[in-house]
Amino acid sequence: MRCSSVRSRLDRLADGELGNRNTLRMMLEHVARCDDCRQELARITALKKDLQRSMRIEAGPEFIATLLGRMEARGIRRHGAVPEARLAKGIAAAVTGIAAAGLILLSLSLLSPGDPAELSHLFLQRLSSGEIACISEGMMLYDTVEYR
C-alpha cells in the first residue's frame, strides 16, 4: 500500500471505522513500517484525545430538574406532569434495556473475534504506548486478536 492511499484512510483507522479486514491488515502493515504515516496517525490520535479531554462537558446532576422547573415556570409544562413513580419506572425500564443491549453486545463480541474496529483500537493503544515498533509486532497483535 502506498503512503498516499494510507494517508487518505488514516482518519478512518484512528476512528475505528475501517470495516474491510483486508484494508485494515494492509493499513496496519504499512503503518507499522512507515515512520511518516505512523507519526501522522499519532498526530490524529493526539488531537482526538485532546479534543475529548478539553471540549467534553457533562450535564450537571440537576440538569433535568432545572429544565422541568423552567418549563413549569414558563407554563410550557404543567406542574407534576410526570409523577416521580412513573418517571422512576421509565428510567428503570430504560436502564434495563441498556443493560440487556450491553449483554448482547458483549456476547457478540466474544463470539465474533477480530472485529476491525476493535483491532484498530487495540493497535492504536499499543502504538500510543510504544509497544508496537515494527511490522512483525504489528502483525502479531493482529493475529493474536483475530484468533483469540
Binding site: 457533562e58 450535564a59 440538569f63 433535568i64 429544565l67 422541568l68 409544562r77 406532569a81 410526570v82 412513573r86 418517571l87 421509565g90 428510567i91 430504560a94
Partner: peptide
C-alpha cells in the same frame, strides 16, 4: 412527558 424525559436523558450530552 415521560417520553420527553427519556429524550432529554438520551440526548442531553
Amino acid at each position: 412527558d415521560t417520553g420527553f424525559i427519556m429524550l432529554v436523558q438520551e440526548y442531553q450530552g
